[in-house]
Design a protein around this nucleic acid. Structure first.
Lengths: 110, 110
DNA sequence: ACCGCCACCTAGATAGACTAGGGAGCAACC
DNA sequence: GGTTGCTCCCTAGTCTATCTAGGTGGCGGT
């Protein structure tokens, strides 16, 4: 059995989280589910990656969080995008497009 | 000043190296130059990333190497793609397309 | 009373890329 | 013939994002 490549591209997790919060606040597991769903189940986010990423984003001021209660009546921490987070999402998206375009340019060469 | 994002997407270096060797054998620095050139100077490969990557690829049997002499009359190690390397390039390219398509799908959502 | 699930949390390992060096040989110059 | 610069290769150590593999507590259903 060959080792599987990860279900995520290193360095894109922050961007994906920010994107998933674009419209509504969500709690941690909800974010992971949403990313999986938005990507047609191609991308998958492990909890051990998710929570550290959320703390990073919160420390940077890109998301803010409040405790609340989930649909299943569990205590849950709801994250929402700040305006700095919106700017960051735009910046990361630009960078992503720029770099992937360059890589695709390389790959496209005969 | 904000920290700059790297000039490379983590995990794509092997693919880019294999791709750069698609037609002709090349030596280390030549490979780095070629990737930079093929990407319109957007991507840049540091030597401290390049050589370890080449040893990895050689250990996996995806490239093979011979000592030779460069255009500038320096001793240089020329790498060439093996047939296993060609298969690997195809596999990594498929994976790349699959994952980036999924990410772009997420980013495209309103 | 128990079990499963939801939601959160964390330590430690892994891996790939980067920083910051070093060395040797050729060429060009004065 | 010394010095300087360039080319090409090499490596140790560090960093950082992700993953593995756990654990806690509380709600709901049986």
């Amino acid at each position: 059995m060959a080792k599987e490549k990860p279900d995520l591209v290193y360095g894109t997790l922050d961007m994906l989280i920010l994107k998933s919060l674009q419209h509504d606040p969500m709690h941690g597991l909800g974010i992971a589910d949403r990313i999986q769903q938005m990507s047609d189940s191609v991308l998958r986010v492990e909890q051990g990656s998710l929570y550290p990423a959320l703390y990073r984003l919160e420390a940077e001021g890109w998301v803010a969080a409040d405790w609340g209660v989930s649909d299943n009546n569990r205590r849950a921490r709801y994250y929402r995008l700040t305006s700095a987070g919106r700017r960051q999402l735009a910046a990361e998206t630009d960078h992503w497009v720029r770099i992937t375009s360059a890589i695709n340019l390389v790959l496209a060469q005969g």
